[in-house]
Design a protein around this nucleic acid. Sequence first.
DNA 1: CAGTGGTCTAGACCACCTA
DNA 2: AGGTGGTCTAGACCACTGT
Lengths: 253, 253
Amino acid sequence: MEPAYRRIAAAYRDRIASGELGPGVRLPTEHEIAEQFGVVRQTVRSGLGVLVSEGLIVARRPHGYFVREWERMLYRPQEKSRPMPSRSTMDRFSQQISDEGRVPSMHIEVALVQAAPDLAERLRVEAGATVVIRRRVRFINGEPVNINDSHFPLELVKDSEIMSPAYIPRGTDEVLADLGHRQERAVDEIFVRMPAPDEIRRLGLGPGTPVAVHYDTGYTADDRPVQCTVNVLPGDRHRIVFERRWRADEPLS
Amino acid sequence: MEPAYRRIAAAYRDRIASGELGPGVRLPTEHEIAEQFGVVRQTVRSGLGVLVSEGLIVARRPHGYFVREWERMLYRPQEKSRPMPSRSTMDRFSQQISDEGRVPSMHIEVALVQAAPDLAERLRVEAGATVVIRRRVRFINGEPVNINDSHFPLELVKDSEIMSPAYIPRGTDEVLADLGHRQERAVDEIFVRMPAPDEIRRLGLGPGTPVAVHYDTGYTADDRPVQCTVNVLPGDRHRIVFERRWRADEPLS
DNA sequence: CAGTGGTCTAGACCACCTA
DNA sequence: AGGTGGTCTAGACCACTGT
């Protein structure tokens, strides 16, 4: 016999999967469900808790539980290595969102920090070495959608405009290029995991929302890493897309 | 005042993050934690439940809670569009795992199904049209690591060896090419979400494990989609890597 | 058999928001 | 003021596994 809380979870999971309960629809209250299934409220809570942690429903107190609504923005890592339209007054993200008729905004913060082990490895500096971190949170219509923390070895960018927490429309890649560190190659790594508490806070994530973590490490022609950007993408708000063509023998590092 | 269950979660989250509790280490029992924090067992369970759903710990009854251990295999979508070493007797996955000194295995199942909406769209067939689905679960040392469900329009592959649930060392892409449907371009899409119950079952996933879903849609030179493979990658077992080079103007569809 | 986590009951009080 | 979900207590019984 399946436990009651699982039966409750399965019942509502099925109704959501079948479309009987569409996005945004409200579920009965915990009391009502408890009565229907002949259990106490705590058991209902366990069952709905499963669905919350699966990301299928959200609790909005004091309104009740609602079927979650998804909307995913296009995320194309390959766009990063194409030239920007020269007349553009906005960075790629802002341009894309504006084109869709929505309002982009950004919060920027610059700091000097000791490189965490994962970044030290990718930037090929010693663990604990000082790096410049340019933290950005991007918003659409005021809602946070992703985090982009770019890291640079300190010597490369000190005294450049990268150190100022201001908007750089042409992008930091261009600034690096002007400084003599033009990137020619990048390695993209994607990890999937549950968010840490500070990521939940910065992105306003609901429970049950996993994130994709995208490391973009850029190399110059002589194979020095000059920047590593950590993008944290909430799973419910992104669709990562890239394209391949068949080739004979291009090396993969 | 923070709720007790959150304080408990935070306490152990910190100890795990700091490395004080390394991978595989056992936590105190629920009773012991309850005593330490002066709360009842149910409250401890709520706290540890948070960490379980964050994927930080696992419960192994009747042994206790343990800090989760991670091991990630390399997943490189771009490898798919490179020629296979002609002397290879194994597919790419099996070769990679063998090279690492581990034992690959696979479960294969072929069926005719009605195309789900997401696949119908990608294969450009009508929703509900019959497609061939070649379901595979891949194992390393007997442990399931990912799901690969390849979908083909029925007319393209009927009477070919793709219809047989047997191992095809050279890969289905080669079979398609032999049938006159050589792929020249592919679109990769990655979504991040929590797994559905049947994915949890097939992959033996623990609670709190998100998945990356990778759609690989292959097109011929005349831009017809000939296959769409849905790869379900447990977040705790994969690291997705690809590479970019700067180019002037290659079109992205 | 002892000890673990898994499930469940029957209550209670709280914070928060809307009406 | 009333109803929502959020938290917590104090118990109880169960299934599973190793000794």
